[in-house]
Amino acid sequence: MGTSAHQLEAAPAPFRTRVPLAFTLLFPAFLLLAAVLGYPVLYSIYLSFVNAQLTRPNDQTLAGLSNYAALLDDPLFGQALAITLVITVGAVAVSFVLGLSFALLVDGLKGRLAGIRGLLLAPWVTPAIVVGFLFLYMFDQQAGVINLVLEAFGATDGRTAWLSDSTLSVVAVTVATIWTQTPFYLLMFAAALTAIPTEQRESMLIDGANRWNEFVHLTVPYLRNVMVVATLLMFIRNFNAFPIIWTMTQGGPVYSTSTLVVYVYRVAFQQFDFGYASAVGVVWLAVLLVLALAYVRFLRRTSLA
């Protein structure tokens, strides 16, 4: 941060150890989070062991492990897992490459051209639901601009039913996700690129390195930590992604774009099976917790180094 240099110069003042005060100041935040995060999580674990139907909220009987046993026999659960991985890996890989390319393209643009960086961030600022509407419209069979353009180039007959085809609908929601997430990588990489010392770059060029050498031996090592951090974050975010998919396809046609979170929502609020939905949710929670801990550990390691 900007003032850290100042802090280094002056001898640091002692920190104050006052437990009651810390408790008072933290109380509002933790009370709130206990109510809307902590308690619901515990309640969710409980629900995964009972038969709970939304239509009969007060009629809950213990079900033991039967909700979890049902997971193993549920082909839709496996399918949801596979779709989540396909969309996430596709979106993360393409956004990564595009974001890195954009960052290299705008690196060093100065003066009025620096504004280009801001313009490239626009998709990131667009609300997810608007992204969904936008791509719902652009992929529309009749009025969608994508079919119009493809037809103009003679690539298709212009009647591709993107969102009602089980494979093409996955492509469509992945494209929308890539569009809105690319600026996140651009942002992370652009910031990291400015940290590369110019002297080092210049000395490499004097030694006769070409651009490719420079990229592989200088840029990539400098960006490595950011690459890991951004990718972990994006995996977590995509594993939780809901609004774009829900807006464009509501998980359909049938279950072909139902990622795990979409599947949880459908089981809970369309089939009203809160117990089973909670079991799916708890499994997913465990997966995300592992990812989150990996992320935190990585941050701690790199900030200590």
Binding site: V36, L37, F239, V264
Partner: peptide, 14 residues
């Protein structure tokens, strides 16, 4: 990094 979707089921009942 919490999955929101997991929260809505218990929160709905609460």
């Amino acid at each position: 990094m919490f999955p929101l979707l997991v929260l809505i089921i218990p929160l709905y009942l609460i």
